[in-house]
């Protein structure tokens, strides 16, 4: 083989690898920056960072993010309670009744929810829920989040149900089990793992989304949970809001909160991975 071809082959391989590494480098840059700066903040404030209240803008201390942390947990929980059953039932509808027009229509509809910018979802929930009730609320945030995470949960459940082998389905029907019984007793058992990881996907998404919360939850940083109809805080929104301020101590708090969010995300991801491998 000519030197020319050999050279081009090698050059191409190097180029591909260089570009590829350039592509993933930012991940490591981000993780290390957050670890370093966030670590600094948390170490300087101590454990009070996790349960304390924010400090005033020009003070030297970053303050705590307690209410936002609790708020995030509540929102994650609420939005999954709303979103998961909805996603599960519609996935069952789409997978087990593919002959029906409605079943196929729903499939297309849910998947196209993915294309709607999340800021729009937040703004629309604002117009439909916040305006009439006159107040930002945890409800509004949870519903906006539920709509955003719905298609992700749906897709995962759908894939899990579809991957049940045909002969298992046949076995269930051979025993004279109806579709309903087959789905709720046999198929869910067989697809157990997929159904659980779908919930993790929903939680992970709900923990990190910011735009749906911008105009729905109001960003309550100073008091802990006051009720579902009242404003509430959340970690991603805190990071966003604090980053936009010009105050250094708030920026430090943002790094600390980012480290918390990063840890939550990576843990959920790790658990998800653990459960996905057979």
């Amino acid at each position: 083989m000519s030197r020319h071809r050999y050279f081009k082959d090698k050059l191409f391989k190097i180029m591909v690898f260089v570009f590829a590494m350039a592509g993933v480098a930012p991940l490591f840059a981000i993780i290390s920056a957050i670890a370093v700066n966030g670590g600094k903040t948390i170490l300087s404030v101590g454990p009070g960072f996790f349960y304390g209240l924010p400090s005033s803008p020009l003070s030297s201390s970053p303050g705590g993010i307690g209410p936002a942390l609790v708020g995030s947990l509540i929102l994650m929980f609420l939005s999954t309670i709303i979103g998961y059953p909805l996603a599960f039932m519609t996935a069952v509808l789409a997978v087990e009744f593919p002959e029906s027009v409605f079943g196929r229509f729903i499939d297309v509809l849910v998947k196209s929810l993915l294309e709607i910018p999340t800021i729009l979802i937040g703004v629309l929930v604002y117009s439909l829920l916040v305006v009439p009730t006159g107040s930002f609320s945890a409800w509004a945030g949870a519903i906006a989040l539920a709509i955003v995470i719905l298609p992700y949960i749906y897709t995962h459940v759908e894939n899990s149900l579809r991957s049940i082998p045909a002969d298992i389905r046949l076995a269930s029907y051979s025993l004279g089990l109806s579709r309903a019984k087959s789905i709720f007793y046999v198929f869910t058992c067989e697809a157990k793992r997929g159904l659980l990881t779908a919930m993790l996907i929903g939680l992970a998404r709900a923990s990190g989304e910011t735009a749906p919360l911008l105009f729905t939850i109001g960003g309550n940083w100073f008091t802990y949970f006051q009720g579902l109809g009242k404003p509430i805080g959340a970690v991603p929104l805190l990071i966003y809001t604090y980053t936009l301020t010009p105050y250094t101590n708030y920026h430090e708090a943002a790094w600390g909160a980012s480290l918390v969010l990063l840890m939550v995300y990576l843990s959920l991801f790790a658990v998800f991975r653990r459960f996905s491998k057979p």
Partner: peptide, 21 residues
């Protein structure tokens, strides 16, 4: 039809027990 399938039960060629039960 479900009674029928319960009364005349079909057993497939390749064993297909429910693997996760």
């Amino acid at each position: 039809v479900y009674e029928l399938r319960r009364t005349a039960v079909y057993v497939a060629q390749t064993p297909n027990p429910f693997p996760h039960m």
